[in-house]
């Protein structure tokens, strides 16, 4: 592990009675992508805003690229970029005007600023839309101009707050390509996401956060191992066979079976995909009519269920886990 890009100890932030970030310790090494995975309201954005010096922590410490986010806020600001979750450029201005504005603010002379804006628009495939107001951009273009705006002066570390939420799959892939490109050039990326597969695809290490606390940390392989390989969902022809099906599956899979609200459905987390085929064969041998079955990657919900014992999207409440 190289030197640390981000290090926090006991970082805390509350808004009234809500403990948005309730004591977070992070150690993010330089280079690569660090993913912060969590549901809405888990405290991801609050944490990023503290690291980007927009919010002052209530307690704890945070160092970004070796500078304290409170005492050395200015040094942090000149080395990092933040791409917020919503509209991080001015929607009333055109693409090129936004980049010119930032380039001038960051100290480029007028001609250099113009050249820089043109280069960025080219690189992000936005040259044709340069003179259009950003509010007329599509979702994918919006995200690209957002990220381009963060690279006017190439930062050592870039924060991407839910960069792909709400994007279509094609635009999402483009953002992923950009993130990979950034990393290839040595930029450290900290991104937050609600999607397990995004963290899986991009991040070298992942912190899972919930109710403002890190509840698991590791590579995606390590996290998956703790959750299981995924889950099997089975639908039966009639509800009367469910009890029998539960018994057969439990025996074949050797894991607890979940009975969902749907009276003909069952599901089970699985650790060994090979057993699945065998368990389905067992079902048909026992004369149980299966109308549908599916094998799913573990979803964020399942990760949460496995790690915390409660579902991800539940409204915040006193944490019993």
């Amino acid at each position: 592990m190289g030197k640390l890009a981000i290090e926090t100890r006991g970082l805390k932030k509350s808004f009234g009675k809500t403990h948005a970030v309730a004591g977070v310790d992070l150690a993010v090494s330089a280079g690569g992508v660090y993913g912060v995975l969590g549901p809405n309201g888990a405290g991801k954005t609050t944490m990023i805003r503290m690291l980007a010096t927009l919010l002052r922590p209530d307690a704890g410490e945070a160092q970004v690229l070796g500078y304290d986010v409170v005492r050395d806020a200015h040094s942090v600001r000149s080395r990092v970029s933040l791409t917020g979750q919503f509209a991080s450029v001015d929607e009333d201005l055109t693409g090129v005007e936004n980049l010119l504005l930032l380039a001038r603010l960051l100290g480029y002379s007028r001609p250099r600023a113009r050249r820089r804006a043109a280069d960025l628009l080219d690189a992000f495939g936005l040259a044709d839309a340069a003179d259009r107001q950003v509010k007329k951009y599509s979702g994918g273009m919006r995200r690209r101009i957002d990220i381009a705006a963060s690279l006017v002066v190439p930062p050592e570390l870039i924060f991407l707050d839910e960069p792909t939420t709400g994007l279509d799959p094609r635009s999402r892939n483009q953002v992923w390509e950009i993130v990979r490109g950034l990393v290839a050039e040595g930029t450290t990326v900290l991104l937050t996401t609600q999607y397990l597969d995004e963290a899986d695809q991009l991040a070298d290490r992942i912190a899972v956060i919930d109710h403002g606390k890190v509840i698991a940390e590791g590579s995606s392989g390590q996290l998956k191992a703790s959750v299981g390989a995924g889950s099997l969902h089975v639908r039966l022809r009639g509800p009367e066979q469910r009890a029998e099906a539960e018994r057969v599956l439990a025996a074949a899979l050797d894991v607890p079976i979940e009975l969902s609200a749907d009276p003909v459905a069952l599901s089970a987390g699985i650790s060994d995909p090979e057993r699945v085929a065998r368990s389905l064969a067992e079902l048909s041998r026992s004369g149980i009519d299966v109308t549908e079955f599916a094998l799913g990657q573990p979803s964020l919900d399942e990760v949460f269920l496995a790690l915390t014992g409660h579902a991800a999207e539940k409204t915040p409440e006193e944490d019993a886990a």
Partner: peptide, 8 residues
Amino acid sequence: ALRSVLLA
């Protein structure tokens, strides 16, 4: 293109 932009 991304590389050239990052080597500003």
